[in-house]
């Protein structure tokens, strides 16, 4: 028997092992090899394997209804599209209400200073002639100059 080169030094490293003949001591049961191939055949599936395109066709047919359901579900549950704000038709709104609405809208976003500027100036308090004379005297205003400037 031809030994592989790696076994050449077997005599040296394993003298007992190398002296044992390499015969196969395992007897094969009688008729084993004649029956075995038939036994394997008996365990094989008898139906022919379907071609690959048919497998894909079946998979696609199964996947399509699921995909359709998913798309329908998404379509029904999707968030409503955002509608652009249209300017209100003023003719359709009662005049007073429109003014109130638009006035409120206009006032929104104004600062306190803006609002103060928009507020009407307080009316000057009415003074009597004596009070007015005292006021001019206190401020040193010449009444004749004031009359001329008017």
């Amino acid at each position: 028997m031809d030994h592989a080169p790696e076994n050449d030094d077997l005599d040296r490293i394993a003298p007992m092992l190398s002296r044992i003949p390499r015969t196969d001591p395992f007897a094969v049961p009688e008729g084993f090899h004649d029956r075995f191939a038939q036994e394997v055949q008996a365990r094989l599936p008898r139906t022919a394997r379907p071609p690959v395109w048919r497998l894909w066709l079946v998979r696609t047919a199964m996947a399509l209804p699921v995909a359709a359901l998913l798309v329908t579900g998404w379509w029904m549950l999707r968030p409503p599209p955002s509608v652009p704000q249209e300017a209100p038709d003023l003719d359709a709104v009662p005049a007073g209400l429109a003014e109130v609405v638009w006035e409120e809208d206009l006032l929104q976003g104004l600062t306190d200073e803006d609002l103060a500027a928009l507020a009407p100036a307080p009316e000057a308090p009415a003074l009597s002639a004596d009070e007015l004379a005292d006021y001019y005297e206190l401020t040193g205003t010449e009444v004749t100059d004031l009359i001329e400037s008017l």
Binding site: F26, V28, F32, F36, A37, V40, Q41, L44
Partner: peptide, 30 residues
Amino acid sequence: HYAFNLLVRQYQGRLYAFVRRMVTDPDESK
């Protein structure tokens, strides 16, 4: 099936020898 039967017959002897040495028991080897 015919081709596979040929394949089994061609390789069963060598493979059985290996399996039998590993498993030992003839029934389990089969």
